[in-house]
Write a protein that binds this DNA or RNA. Structure first.
Lengths: 214, 214
DNA sequence: CGCCTAGTTGAATCATGGTTCAGGTTTCAG
DNA sequence: CTGAAACCTGAACCATGATTCAACTAGGCG
């Protein structure tokens, strides 16, 4: 878990007064953030408690409020941080592939892999839909937009077919994203049994060739 | 909103004592169920309150507890009922199509249509992941299993391609289901602007032909 | 070495809202 | 008609847990 970078211009933001100014403070903040991720990951937002987060971190309740204005604030910080983490993990795998279609497969595998090792993260992002809807929307809109652009560029290079009208890149992006998310839920969070590569291969076959008989 | 059928053999179940025995009772139960759907649909589970549900239904708080043991109980009843509703709406559209691929398109359109007119439903099913996870799993597992069987049968009839290994029908089912759910969120719940048919067409093209250039 | 700021502490406060319950009122089978 | 079972009522009870705050300690700069 990484401490979110504090914007240099945030002198007016309410969190400015909360930014640690000392090495000790930074250490404590990270401790709290990690503990919060565990707590919310295991118990969920509403069942999770500040007292327990503080306990996990080995600090007093009051220290929590030195760094966050509220329970929701720490949750939002978590969502933003994890949103970044997922993309930082998956995007390089997509870019490293020789073409977009191969990248799609690598991306699914990388995503599944990440979900399996970060189940708390998955739950927190999903639950944000009901706790901090704007953060949830931002996450998925960002991912979808990146996807749509990437697909359109791949089409420009002739790597994928694309006899579609304008808004269809968004539809495709959301469709593929939903596919990945659900596969992540079923074969990442709910079960570890199936090998990641097999799932990625099956998903890739679907995305690549479609269902129409040749 | 339909009152869930009470199992005939449920004499031992805790809800047995809660089953209405009178026409008046049935009326009140339906009133409460509808009000709960509104309340949870608008405010979500944790923000929603029993007092407000009772108020919407025009009954006293105590009457709520005549029919449900707890807040969670009514929420579960809602999830089960809505799970049924979605399938009852969508499945006929799929079956009415001349073949599975056409059915897929009809199914997406029907689903989007349903989501747009039942946004509360969408939210309640989704939130059940964090309130009644077993009910959430049951819903999606049931849908996915139905999907997997349906796809495999279509393959048997030669309507879709299927050079895949055994478990891959599940992967395909979850992939397509996730696709639909996310399209439902983005183009059903979040926005009404795009015509349903255009989205269904784009999604269908993706599922049918894939992304690989011909 | 002072001294000011950043950081720490955790008991006490307080709002919220689910749940209970001790009577009334209505329904309907016999 | 009639009485027991069903229903209805809503104020009061209570557990929970987020948030506050006044006193205390550690760190580092002049």
């Amino acid at each position: 878990m990484t401490v979110p970078p504090q914007p240099a211009t945030a002198s007016k933001s309410p969190s400015a007064s909360k930014t640690p100014r000392t090495a000790r403070g930074q250490r404590t903040l990270r401790l709290i953030l990690d503990s919060a991720a565990e707590e919310f990951g295991e118990r969920g937002y509403h069942e999770g408690s500040i007292a327990r987060i503080a306990q996990r971190a080995g600090v007093a309740i009051g220290s929590f409020y030195t760094y966050f204005d509220s329970k929701e604030a720490v949750f939002r910080a978590l969502v933003a941080d994890m949103s970044r983490q997922v993309r930082e993990h998956v995007v390089p795998h997509i870019l490293a592939a020789p073409d977009r279609l191969a990248g799609e497969r690598a991306g699914i595998a990388a995503y599944l892999d990440f979900v399996r090792t970060h189940k708390a993260l998955y739950r927190i992002i999903d639950e944000s839909a009901f706790v901090a809807e704007d953060a949830y929307r931002r996450h998925y809109i960002d991912v979808a937009d990146g996807y749509a652009v990437s697909l359109e560029q791949a089409f420009g290079r002739g790597e994928i077919r694309g006899e579609v009208s304008a808004g269809d890149w968004q539809v495709r992006a959301w469709a593929i994203m939903g596919m990945n998310v659900f596969l992540g839920l079923r074969f990442g969070v709910w079960s570890d049994a199936e090998p990641v590569d097999a799932i990625a291969a099956a998903a890739h076959a679907l995305i690549s060739d479609g269902l129409k008989p040749r």
